[in-house]
Design a protein around this nucleic acid. Structure first.
Length: 283
DNA sequence: ATCGTCACGGTTGAG
DNA sequence: GCCTCAACCGTGACG
C-alpha cells in the first residue's frame, strides 16, 4: 500500500509505480531527448527508466505520434446497444430467414452502425439466439428457417471484432472535431476525453453514435494530436503568457489531469510531495 | 554495448 | 459494493 503509493525503485535508481504509466513529463522528455539524437540507452540511464520502457515509448511514438499511455482498464464499448438490437429484431421479423451477415450489412447500409461499431456476425447470431430467439416460443424456432445460426462465414466480415478495435488504424477525420478536442485544451483533456470516450455508452438509449472525431481507434491508439510538437505548444494561440512555463510544469498539469478519478490528481503522479522532482531535473 | 521483445506482477475501470 | 475480465503499465531478463 505505502509501497505502491510512493513507488518502487528500479535498477537504475528511478522511481516507478508498478502497473501505472510513467508521468507524462518523463514520457515527453524521452521523446525530446530522442529527437535531439540521444541514444535510447543514454535516455534510459539519464532518466533512470528501463530501456525496455524507453524502447516501448519511442516505438509507440513512432507508430502513433502519441506520447500518452493507452487507455487503462475498462471494457470495450458495447456495440450491441438497444437500438441495434431493436433493428436486428425488425430485420428478423421482416425476413425470418435472413442471415446474420445480411443483418450486419443492413445495419451498415441503413446507417444504424458504422464500420467501427457494427456488431460481428457472431454477436448478431448471439443476439438473435438470446434476446430475440428467447422472446418467441421455443417450438416456433424452426431450424430450417433460422439460417442465421448456420450461415457460413462471409469471409472478411468475420473480422469485425478486429475492425472495431484495431490497435492502430487510419486516423479519423478531424475536420468535424470541436476545438475542445485539440491540444489547446490539454489541461482539461480528461473531462473531454472521458466524455468522448464514453460517448457510445452514454448514448445507449439513443441512436448509437460514435463521435465523428473520436473513434474506437483513438481509444487504443491515442489521437495524434498528442504529439510532442502539439504538447510543446498546447498553449492556446493568443493566450497571453508572461513567461513560458517550464516544460515540467506543463507536464505536471497534464499529469494531474491525465486520467479522471485517480488518486494522484492533487499531488504528483507518484503521490510524492511536490518537492520531489523527477530524476532528470536533478542533472 | 545496444536494443527489440516478452514474461511477469501489478493497476484500472466498464460491465 | 463487490467481482470479473481484459485492457494497460514498467521492469527486468534474455538473445
Amino acid at each position: 500500500m505505502e509501497q505502491s503509493t510512493f513507488g518502487e525503485v528500479n535498477q537504475l535508481g528511478g522511481v516507478f509505480v508498478n502497473g501505472r504509466p510513467l508521468p507524462n513529463a518523463i514520457r515527453l522528455r524521452i521523446i525530446e531527448l530522442a529527437q535531439m539524437g540521444v541514444r535510447p540507452c543514454d535516455i534510459s540511464r539519464q532518466l533512470r527508466v528501463s530501456h525496455g520502457c524507453v524502447s516501448k515509448i519511442l516505438a509507440r511514438y513512432n507508430e502513433t505520434g502519441s506520447i500518452l499511455p493507452g487507455a487503462i482498464g475498462g471494457s470495450k464499448p458495447r456495440v450491441t446497444t438497444p437500438n441495434v438490437v431493436k433493428h436486428i429484431k425488425i430485420y428478423k421479423e421482416r425476413d425470418p430467414g435472413i442471415f446474420a451477415w445480411e443483418i450486419r450489412d443492413k445495419l451498415l447500409a441503413d446507417g444504424v452502425c458504422d464500420k467501427y461499431n457494427v456488431p460481428s456476425v457472431s454477436s448478431i447470431s448471439r443476439i438473435l439466439r438470446n434476446k430475440i430467439g428467447s422472446s418467441s416460443s421455443p417450438t416456433s424456432q424452426s431450424p430450417t428457417l433460422d439460417k442465421t445460426l448456420i450461415a457460413p462465414p462471409p469471409g472478411p466480415l468475420y473480422n469485425s471484432q478486429f475492425q472495431v478495435y484495431p490497435y492502430s488504424c487510419p486516423p479519423p477525420t478531424m475536420s468535424s472535431c470541436p476545438p475542445s478536442v485539440s491540444m489547446q485544451s490539454m489541461p482539461s483533456m480528461p473531462t473531454n476525453f472521458h466524455q468522448q470516450l464514453s460517448h457510445p455508452q452514454m448514448n445507449m438509449n439513443n441512436k448509437p453514435q460514435m463521435s465523428s472525431c473520436v473513434t474506437p481507434c483513438m481509444m487504443r491508439a491515442w489521437a495524434s494530436s498528442h504529439s510532442v510538437n502539439d504538447i510543446l505548444a498546447f498553449r492556446a494561440p493568443g493566450q497571453p503568457m508572461t513567461q513560458s512555463p517550464p516544460m515540467t510544469m506543463q507536464c505536471d498539469a497534464m499529469n494531474n489531469h491525465h486520467q479522471l478519478g485517480q488518486n494522484y490528481n492533487t499531488v504528483n503522479y507518484y503521490g510524492m510531495k511536490q518537492s520531489v522532482q523527477p530524476m532528470y531535473l536533478q542533472s
